[in-house]
Design a protein around this nucleic acid. Sequence first.
DNA 1: GAAAGCTGTCGAAGCGCTTCGACAACCTAT
DNA 2: ATAGGTTGTCGAAGCGCTTCGACAGCTTTC
Lengths: 337, 337
Amino acid sequence: MVTLAEVAQHAGVSASTVSYVLSGKRSISTTTRQRVEESIRELGYHPNAGARALASNRSNIIALMIPLRTDMYVPVMMEIAIAVATSARTHGYDILLLTGEEGPDAVRRVTGSGLADAMILMDVELDDERLPLLRGTDQPSVLIGLPADTTGLTCVDLDFRATGALCVEHLANLGHRDIAVIGEAPAVYERHTGFAERTLDGLRTRARELELRLLHRPCEGGYDAMAATLARVFDERPGTTGFVVQNESAVEPLLALLRQQGRAVPEDVSVVAVCPEQVATQASVRLTSVAVPAQEMGRHAVEQLVAKLDGRGSDEVVLLAPELTVRASSGPAPVRS
Amino acid sequence: MVTLAEVAQHAGVSASTVSYVLSGKRSISTTTRQRVEESIRELGYHPNAGARALASNRSNIIALMIPLRTDMYVPVMMEIAIAVATSARTHGYDILLLTGEEGPDAVRRVTGSGLADAMILMDVELDDERLPLLRGTDQPSVLIGLPADTTGLTCVDLDFRATGALCVEHLANLGHRDIAVIGEAPAVYERHTGFAERTLDGLRTRARELELRLLHRPCEGGYDAMAATLARVFDERPGTTGFVVQNESAVEPLLALLRQQGRAVPEDVSVVAVCPEQVATQASVRLTSVAVPAQEMGRHAVEQLVAKLDGRGSDEVVLLAPELTVRASSGPAPVRS
DNA sequence: GAAAGCTGTCGAAGCGCTTCGACAACCTAT
DNA sequence: ATAGGTTGTCGAAGCGCTTCGACAGCTTTC
C-alpha cells in the first residue's frame, strides 16, 4: 500500500502539504499542487480510509437501513437504494447497507462506532423504535417515510394523501361515482408504515368532498386473493366502475380477472394504480397511474443529508407532489342503464 | 464518544487488556474479563471503527457491487443483496454497497483505500473488465455469476446449464415434443452475462439428446413484446405445446395471452419458468418452475469469502444444483390429432 | 529447590492520516 | 526602509486502536 508519506517523499514535499493538496483546506501553489498530483497518479495512491476516518472523525460513509422483508414493494426499495448509492457517490460518500434485522441496535452500533457519518432510514413505521435514538444523537439522519411525530426529524416521502386525492379526482372527472380501492396486504396496515393509511385518508376525504362512494379492501398479492376480493367488491357494490389499486402484485391479477369476467378496461371499468412506472407500463393494459418517485426520493434524501453534514440544511419534511399519468386503463364512466 | 482508554480506567486495567478482552486473542482471567465487560456495558462503549481499521488493517467490511440497471431481475438482486447483508452480519461484517456505475474504478478505490476487506461482485459479464484487477490483488473476492475464464477466481452461481436440461426433461417426460423457449431480452444476451446462454445451452443439448424440437426467442418484458413473440412462435411451430420462460416480466403476459387465445394451461400448453419462487407462486397460474436460489447464493458467497478471510477456503466454482418444483402450469402433452 | 514453563497483565510503539501553530518568503502600504 | 499582511510550506501532535515484547507471579518437573 502506498502511503501519504511516500507520496510526499516522491514529490519532495512534506506529508501535510500532500494532505492539503488532497483536501484543499489550505492554498497550495500551482507548481507544488501539480507535482503532488503527478506523484499521486504515478504511485497509484489511495488515501487509507481507516486512517482518514480516525484523524478527521469523518468516515464519508452514509448508512442506509433497508427493510428486511423481501416480499413487498421490492422494486421501489431497490430503486431507492440504487438512487441513494449513486447519488451519495457524487457527493463523495459511500453507502453502508444495513438490513432492518438488527433493529435499533444497528443505530446504536453505527453511531457509537463512527462507522458512518449519517443515516438514511427506509420503511419507517409510525411509531418507530429507532426514532428516540435518532433524536438523542447529533448524527444527522433522514427518513424515507413519515412517522407519526416528525419533530426534530427530517423526512422525505411521496405525498400519499395528495396521491389518494388525485386518483379520486381523476376518476370523478371521468364520471365515475362508485369506486373500489384495492389496498395493500393487511399486514402492511398492521405494521403502521403509514403510507397506506395516508393514501386511504386522501382517497376518502376527497371522495367525501366529491360525493363519491368509496369501498376499501386490503388485498394480499396474487391471483387467488385478488379473485376473492374482487368477488366481494362486486357483490357489495355491483355498480363499481372505478378501481384504485395500491398493491403492485394485485395489479396484473386484477386486470386478468376483469378481462375474464368480460369487463373491458377502460370501457366498462377504469383502473388507476399507485405503483412504480415500470409496473404501469409493462402491465397487460398500460395503466393510468401515480408513480412512486423512488429515484427522486433517494436523491432527495441524500441531498438533505449532505446539506446537514455540511452544516447547511435543517429539519424539514419534504412531501413530493404526486403526478398522475393518464394511460390506457382509465376512461369515461359507462352510461348508466 | 467513549474510548478504550476510558473503559480501561473505569475497570482499573490497562488499555491493552481491554483490547484483549474484546478480541479474545490472549487469555484473560475470568474476574478481569467480567469487570471489563461490565465497564463496557456501563459506559456504552463501542470501538471506533476507523481506529480499529487503522491499527488492525482490517475494516470488517465487505464490498458488494450490484448492477446499476434497475430494470432487470430486480427481485433476485434484492434478495441476494439482503441475504449477503444479513449473512455478513452473522460473521461480524458490514456491507458496503457499490453500484456498477463506477465500474473497475470502484475495485481500485476499495482495494486501494482499505475501505473493505473483500468484495462480492454481482452481474459478472463473461469477459468482465473487473476481473484482471481482482486477479492482480490479494484482496479476496467472490463472484456471483460465471465469467468465461474462472482461473484464480471464486464463483457462486446457479447451474443454469443443468437448469435448462431439467426444464427440457420435465417437459419431455410429460410427452411434449415441440418446445419454445421465451428468453431474456436481447440486451441480456448482448451483455454476455452468461447465465442466459448457459441455460440455452443446457436446453439445447438435452433437447437434442431427447430428440425434441426447440425454438428459442429472446423477448423483452411486457405484454406487447410477448404478444409479438408468441405470434411468431405459433406461426413457425404451430405444434408447440411446451414453453420454457426465463424472463420474469414475460411470465404473466404469456399466461394472459394463452388464456386469451383459448389455450388452456396446462391442458393444451405447459409452461415451465426459471424465476424467483415468489413470481412462480403469485402468477395467475401457479407455475412449475426452477427457482433462482437467491438467498442461498448470497449466503454461499459470504461464507466463501469469510473462509478466505480466515485463511481457510480456496478458489473454486460452486454451481448450485437447480430444483424443479412441479405446480399447476405443466401437465401431459395433449394427444396429437 | 532450582530450572523451566504457564498465565495474565502492562507499557509502548505505531498504524496513516488531519490539523494546528509556526514561520520563512514575499508583497504591499506607508 | 519598515511595519504589517499574505501566501505557501513544514513539523509535530494526536486521533483510538492493536499488538509485540516484557515480566511478575504462579505452577510444574526432575
